[in-house]
């Protein structure tokens, strides 16, 4: 989800939508800004395990909304660095254990803030330089080594942490962060590609591990990993996969994650980005999906929910806005599907 120019814009003009269905940009910016000012709510404390992801989702959404300055950059960078452990990995917040998912969010936030060099200045981890590498990038190497240490060298997939849970989500997240750190040479790329191939199912989709049912989020992480690794040729049947993905759209315009499940805004991103990667975004009704996402926003207080009328949160706000950006909604910065 790096912010580079993506595929061409779809033909949705804001003027074709009724005024109550315009994206409430100002409200969303305000909503994200106030997320960290809710310490008097129990929910704030119960969601500490998502703090660093929350910052990434919020910041990424702000970039797409064209307001990257709405969060204080130095404060964000300081917070991210305060989550790092001696082993180079990051926890969800200070006091939380290191885990791959939070480490990846940390790397993504630092990339968005254009602050990767702070790792070399203030980062932790195994910074001993390898022959041929420059000592000035040692902090980046420390994070790269932590991530690379989580690859299963027998199967190619990744664990989330030392306790060993494995999932194609971790494989993608690890590879994405390693590529942002420019440290892909620390892992076995071919083995990882083979592992993704072994997670493919008869319906063209991918699961979390070999044998697991296809799921839109797992499809996206597998496609995005292959895209990051430059190996989209490994997708065996793009037609079949495109059919399965396009059947995620339900009559109301929203997308679900598996056959005969409820639609949800977060799947707008996972399904639409997957279709975009295989060049078949036009296989769904993009205008109806745009309307569905907009129906899920809270136009006054800001934020986007999973379904119309539900409670908003920063996770769905991020995926909703990323989905709209992918669909070419006007005034948004273009997102890259991978």
């Amino acid at each position: 989800m790096s912010l580079v120019t993506g595929p061409g814009r779809a033909s949705i003009s804001a003027s074709s939508l009724p005024t109550e269905l315009q994206l409430s940009i100002a409200a969303h910016v305000k909503y994200i800004q106030t997320l960290d000012k809710r310490k008097d709510e129990l929910e704030y404390h119960l969601t500490e395990h998502l703090r660093i992801n929350g910052i990434y989702w919020g910041l990424c959404a702000l970039h797409l909304l064209g307001h990257p300055e709405a969060l204080d950059r130095d404060q964000v960078v300081d917070f991210v660095l305060s989550c790092q452990h001696e082993n180079g990995g990051f926890g969800a917040a200070p006091g939380h254990d290191a885990h791959l998912l939070y480490t990846v969010s940390a790397v993504q936030v630092l990339a968005l803030c254009d602050a990767m060099e702070t790792l070399d200045e203030r980062g932790k981890g195994d910074r001993s330089s390898l022959p041929g590498s420059t000592s000035s990038e040692s902090g980046i190497l420390g994070v790269g080594r932590y991530l690379a240490g989580l690859q299963n060298r027998r199967t190619g997939t990744f664990a989330g942490d030392e306790w060993g849970e494995e999932d194609t989500r971790f494989l993608y997240a690890g590879m994405l962060a390693l590529s942002l750190l420019n440290k892909l040479h620390l892992v076995d790329v071919d083995l990882a590609v083979d592992h993704i191939i072994s997670c493919a199912n008869f319906d063209g989709g991918y699961g979390a591990s070999p044998g697991a049912e296809s799921h839109a989020m797992q499809v996206l992480v597998c496609l995005a990993a292959l895209s990051v690794l430059g190996r989209l040729d490994a997708v065996s049947d793009k037609e079949k996969l495109g059919v399965w993905l396009s059947e995620r759209q339900v009559d109301g315009g929203g997308l679900n994650g598996r056959p005969e499940k409820l639609e949800d805004v977060c799947y707008s991103w996972w399904v639409a980005a997957s279709l975009s990667i295989i060049g078949k975004l036009h296989w769904i009704d993009e205008e109806k999906l745009t309307r569905y996402i907009l129906e899920c926003q809270d136009p006054e207080q800001g934020g986007i929910a999973d379904r119309p009328g539900d409670m908003v949160d920063v996770f769905h706000t991020h995926f909703g806005i990323a989905g709209l950006s992918l669909l070419g909604y006007p005034d948004l910065v273009q997102v890259d599907a991978a």
Binding site: N87, P94, Q151, D161, E162
Partner: peptide
């Protein structure tokens, strides 16, 4: 509790 974290072992 951070010092009890995974610094010793990160390998799967």
């Amino acid at each position: 509790s951070a010092n009890l974290s995974s610094s010793a072992t990160t390998s799967w």
